[in-house]
């Protein structure tokens, strides 16, 4: 396989148990296993995580930035959708 054929993977890392995987960047790899190894070497050098997901970038369906207005603007005037009218108990973390 020629190196330019290596597909792009998007890398997600879970920083610690209880938190969700967060997108940290992308890299090239021949397959999923190599993507995990590369992600370990490129993105977890300073002990950043407990779990890695590598997703082929081609498998991600992404919204078009030019659709931003029709997708997101209608939410602007619907403040009742935001859960800001509740008291959050002090013991609840990660909200």
């Amino acid at each position: 396989m020629d190196r330019k054929d290596w597909p792009l993977f998007e890398i997600f890392i879970r920083p610690k148990n209880g938190l969700s995987h967060k997108h940290v960047g992308s890299l090239h790899a021949a397959d999923g296993r190599m993507a995990l190894d590369n992600a370990r070497d490129v993105y977890t050098r300073r002990g950043e995580g407990v779990s890695i997901w590598a997703v082929p970038a081609a498998s991600i369906a992404a919204s078009d930035p030019s659709d931003k207005a029709s997708l997101f603007d209608p939410a602007d005037d619907k403040i009742y959708r935001h859960p800001t009218f509740y008291e959050i108990p002090a013991d609840v973390k990660n909200i």
Binding site: R3, W6, L27, H28, A29, D37, N38, D41, V42, R45
Partner: peptide
């Protein structure tokens, strides 16, 4: 190294 990612892996 042949790839950027592998360069980092080998030096790690």
């Amino acid at each position: 190294a042949p790839e950027l990612e592998e360069d980092i892996a080998l030096t790690n």
